[in-house]
Structure formats: C-alpha cells, structure tokens
Design a protein around this nucleic acid. Sequence first.
DNA 1: ATGGATAGAGACCTGTCGGTCGCTAAATAC
DNA 2: GTATTTAGCGACCGACAGGTCTCTATCCAT
Lengths: 238, 238
Amino acid sequence: MEDHAATVPSATEARDGGQVDPSVPRRRTQRERRETTIRRLIDATIAVIADVGYANASLGMICERSGVSRGGLFRHFDSRLDLMDATAAEVGRRHVIQARQQLTALHEPTLIEALRVMRDRHRNVENVVWFELMVAARTDPDLRTRLSETGRQFFADIVEVSRLVPGAELFPEEDLEMLVNTLEHTFDGEAIRREIAPDPVAEDRRLELAADFAVFLITRRMNAASSTAEPDPPSSSG
Amino acid sequence: MEDHAATVPSATEARDGGQVDPSVPRRRTQRERRETTIRRLIDATIAVIADVGYANASLGMICERSGVSRGGLFRHFDSRLDLMDATAAEVGRRHVIQARQQLTALHEPTLIEALRVMRDRHRNVENVVWFELMVAARTDPDLRTRLSETGRQFFADIVEVSRLVPGAELFPEEDLEMLVNTLEHTFDGEAIRREIAPDPVAEDRRLELAADFAVFLITRRMNAASSTAEPDPPSSSG
DNA sequence: ATGGATAGAGACCTGTCGGTCGCTAAATAC
DNA sequence: GTATTTAGCGACCGACAGGTCTCTATCCAT
C-alpha cells in the first residue's frame, strides 16, 4: 500500500529542481537501501522472538512486522537460520554495548547498583532474545553450530564488561567468569519466572542478598591476599 | 501391523485351558489398558521434549516413540496442550519424589551433598522438560494458564523438600523459597549452558561457591538470632 | 452368547511453515 | 541516454503440523 512513486510529481522534474519535498525520501544508495532493510528485518525478528518465542517466530510474522516481503527477506538472508544467527549477533552486540554504557555512566558504582544494572539488562528484549536462542540451541544442532562463535565472543565481552565493577580486579579471569555466569543464570531464571509467577518482594531480597554475598566474597578475597602478603592476622580493623 | 489376534490360537480355547503362552499378553482390564497407554504416551512425550524441545515435540514423533496411534492419543487427550499439561504434572511429581528420596537416603546430608543432589536433579530429563515447558509458557498464554496450578503445587513441594537440608529450619518460609528459587535458576542455567559450552571445572567451582553461600547465609542467620537474643556485639568470632 | 461401551487404529482434512521463482523498481556503470 | 546489477515483491510449492472421523478390537455387563 505504499505510494512513494505516486506522490513524486515527476522523476526528471524533481531531479534537478531546486525545491524538493522533504517528505519524499530522496535517492538512496544501494548500500543504504540494503542496510535499512536488514536493520528493519533484524529489529522485527527481535521483537517477534520476544513476543512469541523463537520457535513461533515465523518468517511471515517477521515480514509483516518489518514491512519487508518474503522475497526481500531472502534477498539478504539465505534461510531462517541465517536470519536468526544475524539476530543473535546483533542482540549480543547491543547487550554488551548498553551494559558498558550503563556501568560507565554510573562511574565507580556500588555493588548493588552494578547488580541492579545487570538485572535490568537481563529483563530487556536483547537478553530475552539471547536466552530464547540459547534454549533453542540446546535441541537444535544447526542453530548451536551457527551460534557457537557468536556465543564465545559474547561470553568473553560480558566478562570484560564486568571488570568495570569495583572489586572485580581482585578475582582471576576464570573465577570472575564463573561468578558472572552464575549471576547471569540467576537473573535469566528470574526474568523467566517473573512472567509466570511474579514476586517483586523476593526479587528485591534476591538483589540485596547477591550484593551481600558479593561483599563477602570480596572481603574474603582481600583477606586472603593480605594474609599471603604479610602473615599477620588481620587485627588492624579496630 | 500387529498380529495379536492371529497368534492367539483360539479365544475360547485359551480362556479355560490351563496352559497359556506367556508371550501372548493375557486379558487386561479397560483400566489397565488405559493407564498403560497414557503412561507410554507421557513417557514418550518426556523423552521427545528432552530430545528436540517443546516446540518441536510433534504428536507424530510422540506417537511413533510411544507406539500409540494418533487415534489412541486423542482418545485420552483432548489436544496437544492437554498432553503437555499432563506431562508437566508428571515430571513435576517425579522430580519432587526423586529429590525427596535422594535427600532422605543421605540422612543429614552436608550442604555440599545436598547441593550436589539438587544440581544432579536439575540435569535429569524431568527438570529439563519442566524447564522447556516454563520457557515455552512465557510466550504461550494457553500453556501458561494450563500450567499455573501445576506450577504452584510444584514450587511449594520443592520448598518443602528443601527443609530436609540441615540449616533450612533457620529460615522463614519466604526466605527459604527465595533462596531455593535462586539456586534453581543457577542450576537451570548451568544445565542449559553446559550443553552449548561445557565447563566442568567451573561447574565444580560453582558448587563450592553455592556451598560457601549457604554457609554465609546460615552463619549470618545464626548471628542475627543470637544478637537479638543477647544484645552483645558479635565479637566472639576470635 | 450378545449388545453396548471403551480403547485403539490410521486415512484424511485444513492451515501454516520455510523456501523458490519470475518479475518489476531502483541504483550504478558506461 | 542505455545496459547491467542489485533490491524488493508476492504468488506459488511441497512438507508437515494438529486435529477429525470412521472403523475395528477388546472388554464388560447381562
């Protein structure tokens, strides 16, 4: 139902005429056309997966939502799997970028602030879609293969971002990775369950609990470090 | 292609004859027939969901795996949703029963033993299927409705079972529920990720971490209890 | 034995899915 | 300008999904 060409008065006339109606989109390069279409498709895919889940995210729904035809879709993606792969890469990228932005914006955040950022990010569409894809990958070998490289990159980036939180520098890479993964699992699970059986009170308690435990881990780590450096018992707290 | 009737020499002859070929199944009551068929269907549904996921668990696959025809299936279940609901109830029941058995078998288990039981249970088919159903329920309103009651029961039972672990008695109902849920989320997430990117070393560390966490909570709880009983500051840590 | 009810079988129906194909529109090369 | 390439469209296809329907086998009451 688009009427671009119809509203253009005349192709040749508009070309060299000084006055151009700004509501009518001007000539775009092939690259621009391509990129906007791909972007619309991926945005729609994210929205649809968040709405109806990975398995029910049909190409029909994605085309409808994006305003791109089936033919247009298959011009840029070889298959549904291909589109899903590209979508996974995109949500991973956005998730990491936004997490980094939010943490740097806080500037030396407290633990509870950092954890709140993490929890909120896990409730956003980007992470919901990532989660859907991961769950689907368990039982879909093709998807798993396609996502393996994207996943590696994503997991590494997440750990790197977590280093923005004060206290993270105390832990070696592998410990930090395990801690971050554990928190991710917790918030992923919470994000799912809250859509089935919401419990805001428990969510708050969980956040405080996680912060307390993080403090515990950090102080323990600091004590361990100082006791190996100087063998005195830590009696200087008084 | 079954030939039960063909291999039976004669109905009347076999009825009162003392000798009966044991390879030929004898007369079963309607109730027996019904229950074994339902059981076969649900077992197959569990296996298929664990294999290919909730969304790809088609009735065709379930019928093939169970050896029951489509007609037989729809004799006992009104729809796929109905079958899935029954399957959810069954996996929930089995999960709780087995968890209780394993914990009582240990008899006053240590925290790490109890956590290991919990983790192992979360890797079993019953919990994998439960998880698949929960994730699907997020984006499937009909499924969510059907599972709501089953879910409530399951969540309550899980908390009740967790009271078998020494130390649990220190916590009020709501705290315990939140703690158990947190651990469940952690182990659920781990169970998914280990099928995509296995990391046995991190898993062991995580188990120790969880045990540390539990100890942390219990000691804090005990300190809080004793400090309210006797208002002295907790300087007895030595 | 026999009639009615329940269990089970499997061909069949309709809708939707991912994917293809031939076509037009637009941008680029010349 | 014209030719060629790229972007985008939508009718169409085979496969398979969940669900229905008719028919047979088995069980139970009498």
